[in-house]
């Protein structure tokens, strides 16, 4: 983080950032590129981490970083308009300001995955938190085995980062498969649940790390499908979402059993949360 963050000891105080660019990704989803308003200094984060973004006078929300970890001159966030803050931020233009706290939380196991096959299963906006891991793996491609990216979306027009998915799929060293829940006759791709893609993708279950992000229900079925394919709980990682107000473990809201999603997560190795993952409303 820039020097402005180090100057304050109060973890609840945001640092002003300027909007460098705003891109509409989908009718309800946009991407913001941000740079510190004062000071420079490289912006480091680990794939899977998130920031708290503050919209003046409206509020603050946790948003995963969706950009390239190697691009240290900016922070990129892909945001779905679902509440007052995310809708408000959707009206920002280049030059406008947001407050940033972070980065917070745990990371995708990109180091542990070195030398192994990597299966990325994501759904909806869940591709955004995984994109930094994909960038990292592609930038260090020889260090990894097979790279499988499986993506599920609501319909063909809800596919996030579609051109990028197509570009990755065009690489000889990357297998990309996507599916949608519903489509009409013009769509020539898959229709069905994302778990169906797993059995058609070739990977070596003995030596694979799976990274999963999407709606909790989607992750529940995905974990089961991965386990059916022979992955054990210690090889499956997923990113959880809970209400957050502070991101530093003070507000108590993001508790998931004994874990604070903000500090111990959002990325969890599945064995850590397996006993409570399917307990209703826990």
């Amino acid at each position: 983080m820039p020097t402005a963050a180090a100057a304050t000891l109060e973890p609840m105080t945001p640092v002003p950032f300027r909007v460098l660019g705003m891109r509409k990704e989908l009718p309800d989803t946009y991407t913001l590129d941000l740079a510190p308003a004062d000071g420079d200094g490289p912006l480091h984060f680990a794939p899977g981490q998130f920031n708290m973004l503050y919209h003046f006078g409206v509020g603050e929300i946790p948003i995963s970083i969706s950009g390239d970890p190697a691009a240290t001159d900016r922070l990129t966030h892909t945001i779905r308009s679902v509440g007052a803050v995310s809708r408000g931020m959707g009206t920002l233009k280049a030059g406008d300001m947001v407050g940033v706290r972070g980065p917070f939380g745990s990371a995708w196991p990109v180091d542990e995955a070195r030398g192994r096959d990597v299966v990325i299963v994501c759904g909806g906006i869940g591709l955004a938190p995984l994109r930094p891991a994909i960038y990292h793996i592609l930038a260090n491609r020889p260090s990894y085995g097979r790279l499988v990216i499986l993506y599920g979306a609501r319909s063909p027009r809800d596919i996030l980062f579609r051109r990028e998915l197509e570009r990755w799929g065009g690489r000889l060293d990357t297998y990309v498969d996507a599916t949608v829940d519903r489509a009409t006759g013009e769509w020539s791709g898959n229709v069905g649940v994302v778990t169906n893609l797993i059995r058609h993708s070739g990977f070596d279950p003995v030596d694979t790390i799976a990274m999963v992000c999407g709606p909790e229900t989607m992750m529940q079925y995905t974990v089961e499908a991965l386990r059916d394919r022979g992955l054990d709980n210690t090889r499956i990682y997923l990113s959880m979402e809970r209400n957050m107000k502070c991101a530093v473990g003070f507000c108590g809201r993001c508790q998931f059993g004994g874990a604070f999603v903000c500090r111990d997560g959002p990325v969890f190795r599945f064995d850590r949360i397996a006993p409570i993952f399917r307990v209703w409303e826990f």
Partner: peptide, 15 residues
């Protein structure tokens, strides 16, 4: 089971 999950529309907008 797959059809039921599709009906759930888990990627749908919360609105």
């Amino acid at each position: 089971a797959a059809s039921r999950l599709q009906i759930v529309d888990m990627y749908g907008h919360p609105d």
